[in-house]
Design a protein around this nucleic acid. Structure first.
Lengths: 215, 215
DNA sequence: ACAGAAAATGCAACCGGGTAACAAATCTTT
DNA sequence: AAAGATTTGTTACCCGGTTGCATTTTCTGT
């Protein structure tokens, strides 16, 4: 993929990685707000302006790995098997991520990842940044859904926007619920059946069950 | 409602109002990021710490009026007519807000309100704060929906959480779409039919149509 | 009416995130 | 090896937000 890496490029990659991993380590130790960017810069032996040349904001030090997941939902829709509906593809993909205990599903009891999720869901500024990331996710998913819409209705665009928002929202809620299960002391393995059931319920509600409950 | 207002209380109210309205005026003139809190404090002839005793953050200077709308969705659900479903109540309430050109629907072409909405949707920090407000809205709506759920299923709580999130998300998307219509130069009156149609579509999709489109 | 408690304000100094300017160091290219 | 472009460090600054303390203003009881 990325050959032709000169020395300069390699060094940059290393610095970036050192900044992010050192930052996360400090954040997990002391808490996000109890670590200043100056601390991180000092620990990596880099100046503050240099740190900000690598990461535009403090929050990105903690979140850039999550940011790498960006566009996943859109990709799932685009790469789905022929004949499969977008919702069906997203649903089965989510179940697969649950089985893999993917951190983005919230269903992971590894100590470090649990600590990270705790920090994420309890630090307002991190949550705010996460919202911005998922906002871009939503846009990409909107595009993907819009492409696949067979009806040329004038409202197709809005329908795609809305569907994308609902799907991203569903994933957010599912992840929060899973994180809570773990926070309550259950292991990921124990919570797995509930997590699958919640995902089923959620996708069912998207697919028409909402009306049955509150309609 | 609020009798027994001593002189002290009255003065506080006035200061609060002066801060907020002066701030919004300055924000609309120069842009949110181009006005410092020190500017606002100076314009009201108040010290910076005092300003922050009234508003916990700069964003709240611009948003506290919106914050006053808090809990509206939950209230609509709780106060709905006997025999009416929560979704039906919310749907008709939204249509009513559209007809009233309520700014929270995005469908308002008054110059000041339009400028305010433009600022709101284009200033990241304001949007982030708005998300936090709507987050509390979501929680309240969750409660309201949970109360009305007739099924005692173990999943009722999650279903309510999810439904609340989907409804708030729908309102957000509808408001954004309406704001865009106005930004494109249409008058509120011209855009009203489309806005109603979009709301219908949105609520229909919540009520089962999502599956028909992408299921 | 007045003293003193209680609350609100102002002042000044501070912290942390983020940026600008410019010079010094480092890598690349020929 | 030297010219050129990139990256870095230093310093100093701006802004949002907080703290401690002295001062003023309002409220309350007598």
């Amino acid at each position: 993929m990325n050959e032709a890496t000169g020395l300069r490029e390699r060094k940059k990659q290393r610095t970036r990685e050192a900044l992010s991993s050192t930052a996360i380590e400090l954040f997990l130790e002391r808490g996000f707000d109890q670590v200043s960017v100056a601390d991180v810069a000092a620990a990596v032996e880099v100046s503050k302006p240099t740190l900000f040349r690598y990461f535009p904001a403090k929050e990105d030090l903690a979140l850039h790995r999550i940011a790498d997941h960006q566009g996943e939902s859109a990709r799932v829709v685009r790469d789905r098997a022929a004949g499969q509906s977008p919702l069906a593809a997203l649903r089965s993909h989510f179940h697969a991520r649950l089985d893999a205990h993917d951190p983005i599903t919230g269903l992971n009891d590894d100590a470090r990842i649990r600590a990270f999720n705790d920090m994420l869901y309890t630090t307002p500024s991190l949550l705010a940044r996460l919202v911005r990331y998922t906002g871009r996710d939503e846009e990409e998913l909107t595009e993907a859904l819009h492409e696949t819409a067979d009806d040329g209705a004038a409202t197709a665009r809005f329908a795609a926007e809305l569907a994308a928002a609902q799907i991203i929202t569903l994933h957010r809620r599912l992840a929060e619920a899973n994180w809570r299960r773990i926070a309550d002391g259950r292991t990921a393995e124990q919570a797995l059946p509930e997590a699958h059931a919640a995902a089923e319920l959620g996708y069912d509600l998207l697919g028409g069950g909402l009306a049955a409950h509150y309609g």
